Simulated scan of single mutants.
Amino acid sequence: MNLPTSSPQPVRPVVDPFFDPRTWTVTYVVHAGPGTAAVVIDPVLDYDPKSGRTATDSAERVAAHVRQLGLQLQWILETHAHADHLSAAPWLRAQLGGRIGIGERITDVQKVFAGVFHLEAGFRTDGSQFDHLFRDGETFAVGDLPVEVMHVPGHTPACVAYRVGDAVFVGDTLFMPDVGTARCDFPGGNAHALYASVRRLLALPPETRLFVCHDYPPAGREVRFESTVAEQRAHNIHVHDGIGEDRFVAMRTRRDATLEMPVLILPSVQVNIRAGQMPPPEANGTTYLKIPVNAL
């Protein structure tokens, strides 16, 4: 007689967060322990919008941690082309190695914003600025850690989540339960698509850990960035169990109409669709970021 066997427990990676209070962004270093392979998810390049100057303080903290633990950086993963911070992916790759990856629908975002910013004739909208474009359901390994890519559009057409063992890095698709969900009013955003993406994430096992890219805590709460599927299903103010698609879309549409644009959207997007690279310098040797007037 064959006795039933229990399902294997999912791998539980080590998740080391680095919170940037200037952009409310959380960068993650994900690994299996000291001396193992690692990924960095959503790294931040410091940018001062008043002076136009960049710095690498945030990324240096991440790099120092990777070196201290003797980790081998294999991937620098972007959940989407961020609108609230510039990516430090190229700087980290130059310091530590690894490959820069993002979802394959980044090409849709590039096509839209190449027009918005009237980018140079040589700008490519095929995603070739990145080392790899991930398709929905693609799997790969980082050492002993299994990774699955989940396409979760809605906030942008290119948003992906990375499932690493029992942990899922959801980007802006979900926030902490008392904050809700991402906005859908950027070019290519779609509240119906976001609802479907959230329900896909919340269909994962209830104990699955969910790590958000940003936290905007209500007054009196400290910054948090980790929840579970069960917590989100019970308490997310926008999409807890029992909230249907029509109700969610109506709420999201009303709310988005009241939101201001993120402070760094204009510099961030035109850099992040280039995999974090700056635009090519002009004839005088200086790099310029464009500010389209009355275009958004």
Rank of each mutant, 00 (worst) to 15 (best):
M176Q: 11
D108N: 07
R252L: 12
P292S: 07
D84T: 14
T139Y: 05
T56R: 14
V40R: 05
N284G: 15
V212E: 00
G171S: 06
D46R: 07
L296E: 09
H82T: 06
H235P: 10
R183W: 10
F211R: 08
E226A: 03
T181C: 02
V142T: 06
T56V: 15
A158N: 15
S227P: 10
H31I: 04
S197L: 06
A196C: 11
R274A: 01
N294L: 14
A196Q: 13
M176C: 09
T181H: 01
H118F: 11
V263W: 13
V160Y: 02
Q270V: 09
E138M: 09
L204A: 04
V15S: 05
C159A: 13
G188S: 04
R99D: 11
Q232L: 07
R233K: 10
T228P: 02
P13R: 03
A32P: 03
Q232R: 03
D185W: 03
G70Q: 05
L259H: 12
G97R: 04
A83V: 13
S268L: 06
E245V: 13
Q9E: 14
F211Y: 15
V44S: 06
G52R: 09
Q129D: 15
G97V: 07
F113S: 01
T156W: 06
D246I: 05
F248R: 05
I237H: 03
V15R: 03
R12I: 12
S227T: 15
H132P: 12
G98R: 02
A257Q: 14
D42L: 03
R124F: 11
V168P: 08
F225T: 11
T5I: 13
L174C: 06
T228V: 00
A283H: 09
F248Q: 02
T258W: 01
P279Y: 01
D144N: 13
E222Y: 08
P146S: 08
E231G: 03
I102P: 05
G97E: 09
G35N: 05
G103N: 04
D256W: 04
V11M: 10
A63D: 02
D108T: 09
A94Q: 15
M1Q: 13
A234W: 08
L296R: 04
Y288M: 11
R200H: 10
T208E: 03
A32F: 01
Q74C: 10
S268I: 04
E260H: 12
Y288N: 09
M176R: 07
E260L: 11
G33E: 03
P262W: 06
A283E: 13
E245R: 14
N294P: 08
P218Y: 01
V170G: 00
W24S: 13
T173C: 12
H31T: 09
F211V: 11
A196H: 14
N190K: 05
I76N: 05
L296V: 09
L174N: 02
N2H: 12
P206G: 00
E226F: 00
E226D: 08
F225D: 00
R252S: 15
Y216V: 04
H151T: 12
L266G: 09
I76C: 02
S6D: 04
L202G: 00
T286P: 00
E260A: 15
G285V: 01
S7P: 01
A88C: 01
A94W: 10
P280D: 14
V39Q: 03
V269Q: 08
V164F: 01
A81M: 06
R93P: 07
A167S: 15
V239D: 01
H85C: 11
A257S: 15
Y47M: 01
Q95R: 15
D48T: 10
